[in-house]
């Protein structure tokens, strides 16, 4: 009894510390976003703003290109999620169910790309994109994110959990692969698919290096890059309070999105009435 309590206590203590550490940057971001430009420079910095300046959020919003960047990101994210989900579902189904030559080899090749750090691919991808003449184009922002090996792997594992017999019955009944995928596999794998969509969204939402590299045109910039240079004043000072207000606005939708869909992310596959 006692030792169990002690163990639980230790675990909770550890988790509390970890959570606090994680929350510090968020706290600082929100703290900064609510300060006036004068208070910002005070040393030592104030832990709670003397006066909450919500005006910062409005100022950040109307600061010329910020809304534009945000809508660019939303547009790219929607396109990426749509295309990459389609690609991921079809690839995962092929790897989980279909029988074809070289399947194992191909699957390991896909997994292999997961081991290569993204940073290493940037140069080659950059050369590919520039040869294709895709600099400053939507394609360059969307296509590289459409194939996500981790998502393919995740969905393949989920699809594999659907019992073989469901597939066999469908085959014997003359149901096509596509119909089976659509009517049986997808509904049963809903939560995992939503998870992959969220992961894709997060991936594009906070990717920085690649969009920065291939967009020089302000009209195509994403918000992650825009945050960097939209808030430099005429005198060259970075307006941190506005930048942090903007950052908060960028992050909040993602956090809300995550909280709303938490049920899906955390719940495993719904196996319903299957036995045996």
């Amino acid at each position: 009894m006692k030792t169990q309590f002690a163990r639980k206590f230790a675990v909770y203590l550890l988790l509390t510390i970890a959570v606090s550490l994680m929350l510090v940057p968020f706290y600082w971001m929100i703290n900064t976003s609510l300060k006036s430009s004068v208070e910002l420079l005070r040393t030592p910095p104030t832990m709670i703003p003397a006066e909450l300046r919500f005006q910062n959020f409005l100022d950040a919003l109307i600061k010329a290109p910020f809304l534009r960047y945000l809508s660019n990101t939303v547009f790219v994210a929607i396109a990426v999620v749509a295309v990459s989900t389609a690609v991921t579902v079809l690839a995962a189904f092929a790897f989980a169910r279909l029988r074809f030559r070289g399947k194992t080899l191909l699957f390991f090749a896909v997994l292999g790309t997961m081991m290569v750090p993204q940073e290493m691919l940037i140069i080659t991808n950059f050369m590919t994109v520039s040869k294709l003449g895709w600099m400053n184009s939507w394609q360059a922002l969307i296509v590289p994110y459409c194939i996500n090996p981790f998502n393919i792997y995740l969905l393949r594992q989920t699809f594999k959990q659907v019992p073989d017999e469901l597939y066999l019955v469908s085959r014997v009944d003359g149901v096509s692969h596509f119909r089976y995928l659509q009517k049986v596999v997808l509904p049963l794998s809903k939560s995992s698919i939503v998870t992959t969509m969220i992961l894709s969204t997060i991936w594009i939402w906070d990717s920085y290096a690649w969009p920065n590299l291939i967009t020089t045109d302000d009209g195509k910039r994403l918000v992650s890059n825009g945050l960097q240079n939209a808030f430099t004043s005429d005198t060259g000072r970075i307006q941190y309070e506005l930048q942090m207000a903007a950052a908060t606005m960028v992050i909040v939708p993602l956090v809300l999105f995550f909280l709303l869909l938490r049920k899906y992310i955390l719940s495993g596959m719904d196996k319903g009435g299957l036995k045996g």
């Binding site: 019992p163 017999e165 066999l168 469908s170 009944d173 003359g174 119909r179 009517k183 719904d270 319903g272």
Partner: peptide, 23 residues
Amino acid sequence: FQNYALYPHLTVWDNIAFPLLNA
């Protein structure tokens, strides 16, 4: 099959109608 292999997300009606409507 031994393990019934019913489509768990569908009602009995939909399960029975499945081979009629999807092939």
